[in-house]
């Protein structure tokens, strides 16, 4: 590699690397640093090293069922993300399978219909459910005009979960479709030829070979779901908070930046650990 070539490389790489370093890596590290600082009641931090923030996160609260409310929210966020992922997989896998089996034109139209929500503004799609579920929303308006009792739908866990699944479904279907479409159907014939029944062909041939799509879809759904802010705010009304809400709260009204940072750090560690474990298990399965 000549001198000219390395000059060329730094010209190509430099600006992007600077931007990412300055406006992504440094801010992320700053959050880690902030989590070990003292709280400044006017926002920001006082530059004294302190473990206060982590202590607050892990202190036992006798009022709460678990260690404290923050831990409850952590658990809830991860649990709901799991539920969302499973629901998206249960709806999305058969859907992707169905689309992949259609004739080219039908396939294109159906795929396009999955793409539209994928590209549609997330706020708008979340608002659509608020419009339906609100106390003066579509369902309750219809109910009351039929002379029936209004039912509380908005600001419930159900509303938040519907919103999460609704927002995430296209992110599950598209990678699934990509891997199902690539599947070589002569393998199914080979399986039948060897006397396997449909169930066995599905579990032993089809599912393992479309696993990369499942993995991609699950990650694309799970991670954004844990960190959701828009859905629990609009459909949960702050009454059923998720991690995103307490993060925003600590950096907003509560003005406790070290604590917010500590939550973000623990959150990222758990997320990374989850992803790493997932891939480790996956690799082990591949090895078998």
């Amino acid at each position: 590699m000549g001198k000219r070539r390395s000059l060329y490389l730094s010209f190509l790489l430099g600006p992007g690397a600077f931007w990412l370093l300055m406006f992504f890596v440094v801010p992320s590290l700053l959050v880690v640093v902030y989590s070990f600082m003292e709280r400044s009641s006017s926002g920001g931090v006082i530059w004294n090293v302190s473990l206060e923030a982590y202590a607050k996160l892990f202190t036992f609260d006798p009022e709460s069922l678990f260690v404290n409310d923050f831990v409850v929210i952590f658990l809830r966020s991860f649990w709901w993300a799991v539920l969302t992922t499973v629901a998206c997989l249960l709806i999305g896998y058969p859907l992707a399978f169905y689309i992949a089996q259609q004739k080219p034109t039908a396939r294109m139209i159906l795929l396009f219909m999955v793409m539209i929500p994928f590209w549609t503004n997330f706020l708008v799609r979340t608002y659509a459910w608020k419009f339906i579920l609100n106390n003066n929303g579509l369902i309750n308006t219809v109910l009351s005009s039929l002379g029936m009792q209004r039912i509380p739908l908005i600001n419930t866990p159900t509303a938040v979960l519907i919103g999460l699944v609704y927002g995430s479904l296209p992110f599950m279907v598209l990678p699934l479709y990509a891997s199902i479409e690539k599947f070589d159907y002569t393998l199914v014939e080979a399986g039948q030829d060897l006397g396997a029944n449909y169930f066995r062909i599905f579990t032993r041939v089809f599912l393992p070979l479309t696993m990369p799509g499942v993995a991609a879809g699950c990650i694309l759904v799970f991670i954004p779901a844990v960190g959701q802010y828009v859905v629990p705010t609009i459909l949960g009304g702050g009454k059923v908070a998720m991690l995103g809400n307490i993060l925003a709260q600590q950096f907003g009204a509560a003005l406790n930046w070290p604590f917010g940072s500590a939550i973000a750090v623990v959150f990222m560690i758990l997320l990374m650990a989850g992803v790493l474990i997932y891939f480790a298990v996956e690799r082990e399965e591949e090895a078998v």
């Binding site: 990412l20 700053l30 902030y34 991670i223 960190g227 993060l247 925003a248 940072s261 973000a264 990222m268």
Partner: peptide, 27 residues
């Protein structure tokens, strides 16, 4: 290594990137 860093902004939840940038710009 850079390859990994390049993928991070896609994977990291937007709320985390949001608060990190908030802290960074404030400072």
């Amino acid at each position: 290594t850079y390859d990994g860093i390049l993928y991070l902004p896609v994977i990291v939840p937007d709320i985390v990137m949001g608060i990190a940038l908030l802290a960074f710009f404030a400072l």
